[in-house]
Computed example of a mutant assay.
Amino acid sequence: MKTRYIIIPFLALSFINCGHDKAEEKPTNERTSGEFTVFVTIQPLASIADSIAGNLANVEVLLPANSKTYDYKPTPDDIKRLANSAVLFEIGIGLDEWATPIALKAENGPRIVPVSAGIPILPSVPERVRRRLFEEGKVAAHGNPYVWLDPYTVADMIIPVMTRAFAAADPHNAGIFRENSAHYTERVKNFADEAENNLKKLKNSRIMLYHGSFAYFCRRYGIEVSDIIEPFPGREPTEDDIAEIIKNAKRDKPIAILVDSDAPPKPAETIAKELGIPIVHVDPYGKPGESYIELMRRNIRAIVEIPL
Rank of each mutant, 00 (worst) to 15 (best):
284 P>I: 01
303 I>Q: 12
134 F>S: 14
31 R>T: 04
15 F>V: 06
110 P>Q: 07
13 L>S: 13
253 K>G: 05
18 C>E: 11
185 T>S: 07
175 G>N: 11
214 F>H: 06
143 G>P: 04
132 R>Q: 15
276 G>T: 04
13 L>W: 11
108 N>M: 05
116 S>D: 00
212 G>H: 03
170 D>W: 07
189 K>H: 08
143 G>I: 09
13 L>E: 15
205 S>W: 00
50 D>K: 06
145 P>V: 03
120 P>H: 08
47 S>E: 01
40 V>E: 03
300 I>N: 09
66 N>W: 00
126 P>W: 12
232 F>R: 13
222 G>Q: 00
209 L>G: 02
278 P>A: 01
262 D>I: 11
239 E>M: 15
246 I>N: 05
64 P>R: 02
121 I>A: 09
210 Y>L: 02
215 A>K: 15
195 A>C: 01
175 G>P: 04
182 A>S: 11
103 A>K: 02
140 A>Y: 09
130 R>P: 01
248 N>V: 05
307 P>K: 08
173 N>D: 15
294 E>G: 13
169 A>L: 06
142 H>I: 12
279 I>E: 04
156 D>Y: 14
215 A>Q: 10
85 S>K: 01
169 A>H: 05
78 D>L: 04
303 I>Y: 06
91 I>Y: 03
109 G>W: 01
220 R>T: 07
147 V>H: 11
50 D>T: 07
191 F>R: 01
189 K>F: 06
156 D>P: 00
197 N>A: 04
213 S>W: 07
44 P>V: 07
84 N>L: 03
263 A>T: 09
178 R>P: 14
121 I>C: 07
278 P>L: 07
236 E>P: 01
308 L>R: 13
159 I>V: 10
129 V>I: 15
178 R>Y: 15
273 K>R: 13
295 L>K: 00
42 I>C: 08
259 V>Y: 00
255 I>V: 13
180 N>Q: 00
264 P>F: 12
135 E>K: 15
308 L>G: 10
64 P>Y: 05
175 G>W: 04
100 T>D: 08
17 N>S: 08
239 E>G: 03
139 V>A: 09
262 D>E: 14
37 T>I: 11
17 N>Q: 15
185 T>R: 05
234 G>D: 08
225 V>A: 15
255 I>L: 08
175 G>H: 10
264 P>G: 11
146 Y>A: 04
214 F>C: 07
238 T>Q: 12
193 D>P: 02
193 D>L: 14
264 P>V: 00
44 P>Y: 00
266 K>I: 12
166 F>V: 12
67 S>Y: 08
27 P>H: 04
16 I>Y: 10
98 W>M: 02
114 P>T: 02
56 L>Q: 10
145 P>W: 09
156 D>A: 14
254 P>G: 12
111 R>N: 04
286 G>W: 07
274 E>Q: 09
55 N>L: 10
101 P>Y: 06
222 G>L: 06
203 K>V: 11
157 M>W: 13
223 I>K: 07
275 L>K: 01
258 L>Q: 00
234 G>E: 11
2 K>P: 15
185 T>Y: 01
23 A>T: 13
70 Y>I: 14
224 E>C: 09
142 H>R: 08
30 E>T: 15
258 L>D: 04
143 G>E: 05
284 P>N: 05
104 L>I: 03
245 I>D: 10
